[in-house]
Design a binder for these strands. Structure first.
Lengths: 344, 344
DNA sequence: CATTGGCGCTCTCGCCGGAGGAGTGCTGAC
DNA sequence: GTCAGCACTCCTCCGGCGAGAGCGCCAATG
């Protein structure tokens, strides 16, 4: 049994591989006759039929009806990507092209362009979960809008700018505001908000009462700004999926799918899940646990800053996709995104 | 000829109105028999057929094939909305609901929620062109990121925060940065960037050379920030259009339509156009000059701040839509958006 | 005993023709 | 001007039919 894996002998594996590759290529159910020609094996259609019957029993392939060829099941795809697939890495030129398309001006643009690149290259939908902010803060500023409304400007450690309007109980003078900002900037720059909270708690007694209020308000707003904007998912190229006939043939599925795209949170959960693993992850059909995706596959890869995973990139397409091409694209995009973020 | 408009006598108008209303209601071509029942007129189908033939000659209606009923043409819809339609304004309750859905925290949220509300209420796609910024500036701040990279934070007169990274030729000390910011803040707060540019040109000689560089860089960045983020269009509820069978029945049209949605600029032109008129505007079918929209209607209304038009809201749906309902929704949304912005 | 050619069976798909239905245009009567 | 009647056209919906594809099974073979 040296040449068997999961009960599949070498011949069966070869045929399964050939079948899936063919099916991915042209979307038609594959018959024994066709398979006998393209498998490379010197086998008659009849023999192939035997093997196919076995493969069907084991749940790797299925036939849409009595006398069509066979198509891969989700389980078949699973086995395919796990043990049969040989991904060919992108060559240098393609990587350079890809890199060239990323807009590095700021984090927002970086993320959007990454998502865009993914969808352009794969012609499916590209998704990127925006980077978790490193909770550190670099600079803070209070600006008086009207008597009791302040604009809080917050520059996080990674150079992104957040702003929030806060209502105060009393009216602060400009100098008070400057003072408060100075205290925070001088003493706590670089710390995370939790750190600050803890330290401020201890040291705050030395400050005037109203100052305290201002500080805590600022901290709360900062916390909120950080956590609220913490994770979002950017999708692009949903349109591409309209052109995928596997999906566009049944309108209801398509609608469910697009509804899913509007429900960011659900999608976020799925993608977050994948950021716990490392390297490329693949969800095929219902594996993701989301019913609208049962004719889709999701390919994801986490990206990181300073060795810490901060987000996920991915592609959503039909289960019938060119995995050997999409996988390296997602992989490389994650890596390029990581290194682009590292330079900021 | 007192009771004629554009060559249509009263009876023809009544019938056209009944026909269109019926067609909008159930999407089926309307025949003479049905029309004779629901028109309210005491006319036999035969007489009605005569009128319908006239209406067809004049291009208001057409028949999909020999023996179907008639459907309105774009020209028919045009006449309908221009002279036959009686819009029923929303009642107080609906307006309040609508108002409740707007999120007033900041401009961004306001715009997004407005678009969202439009799509929810009409079940079509909602669009909003983001407000043109009043070019004034309120506050500026330089923050050193690394040796020659500065983060420029810019608070515009309307309380929005912009930020830009600028590369400098020399390395500035924190105090120099503060000084530069102070000069701008003290002397020019409230002015538009053009004003500043003009005045700075004159007064700049008194400043040190390197300061000048910093200032002009800041001005350029500010200008760019203002102009770049000046106009964008937010679309929501595109998914709804998948559920509209008038559109979803032919996939190609649908794809073109969604492609249009990704090409913001084209859409922007159309919407901008409408902001020059005042009040609700309606583009039916190809009237907008965009071929992907030839089975769609676009209902728009400009919104304003301080009596100046700053953007446009709108709804994109099939030509066969309940105009008498959509029109007031768009109208009110524009007004609510105006007043929400006024309070900021 | 794995392989293979042959055979019958099943299922889909496209095509054709007829029935049914809807709605029109026309004509002649009032 | 209105209207009933009538012939005509066109669409849609089957049902049947043949072609094609592909399978399962079986018996023969080396």
């Amino acid at each position: 049994m040296a040449n068997e894996t999961q009960g599949l002998n070498e011949r069966a594996q070869l045929l399964l591989k050939a079948l899936i590759e063919r099916y991915i290529a042209d979307g038609q159910p594959v018959g024994s006759r066709a398979l006998s020609k393209l498998s490379g094996l010197e086998l008659s259609p009849a023999s192939i039929r035997n093997v196919m019957a076995d493969l069907e029993d084991m749940g790797f392939i299925a036939s849409p009806h009595t006398s069509a060829g066979r198509v891969p099941t989700a389980r078949g795809y699973r086995f395919f990507v796990d043990t049969l697939l040989t991904v060919k890495p992108l060559d240098r030129i393609e990587i350079n092209q890809l890199e060239g398309q990323l807009q590095v001006e700021n984090t927002q643009k970086l993320v959007t362009s990454a998502s865009h690149v993914l969808s352009e290259l794969t012609r499916f939908a590209g998704v990127v979960v925006t980077p978790r902010r490193s909770a550190g803060f670099r600079h803070i500023e209070f600006l008086k809008l009207s008597e009791k409304r302040l604009l809080l400007i917050l520059v996080t450690a990674d150079g992104d700018v957040q702003n929030r309007i806060i209502q105060t109980e009393k009216s602060y003078s400009p100098s008070e505001l400057t003072e408060a900002a100075n205290i925070l900037n001088r003493n706590y720059a670089g710390c995370s908000f939790e750190d600050i909270r803890r330290r401020v708690q201890a040291e705050l007694k030395q400050l005037r009462e109203d100052m305290t209020q201002l500080m805590t308000a600022a901290l709360a707003a900062g916390d909120q700004a950080v956590s609220e904007s913490a994770e979002d998912v950017v999708i692009s190229g949903e349109v591409n999926l309209l052109g995928v006939d596997d999906l566009s043939s049944n309108m209801n599925k398509l609608r469910e799918l697009f509804n899913l795209f509007e429900h960011r949170t659900t999608l976020l959960q799925l993608l977050d899940h994948s950021s716990r693993a490392q390297g490329v992850q693949i969800f095929i059909g219902g594996e993701a646990g989301l019913q609208p995706l049962d004719e889709c596959s999701v390919i994801t890869a986490p990206y990181e800053v300073d060795g810490k995973v901060v987000g996920t990139v991915g592609v959503i397409g039909p289960t019938r996709m060119a995995y050997e091409r999409v996988i390296p694209i997602v992989d490389i995009t994650a890596k390029l995104l990581s290194s682009a973020l590292a330079q900021r």
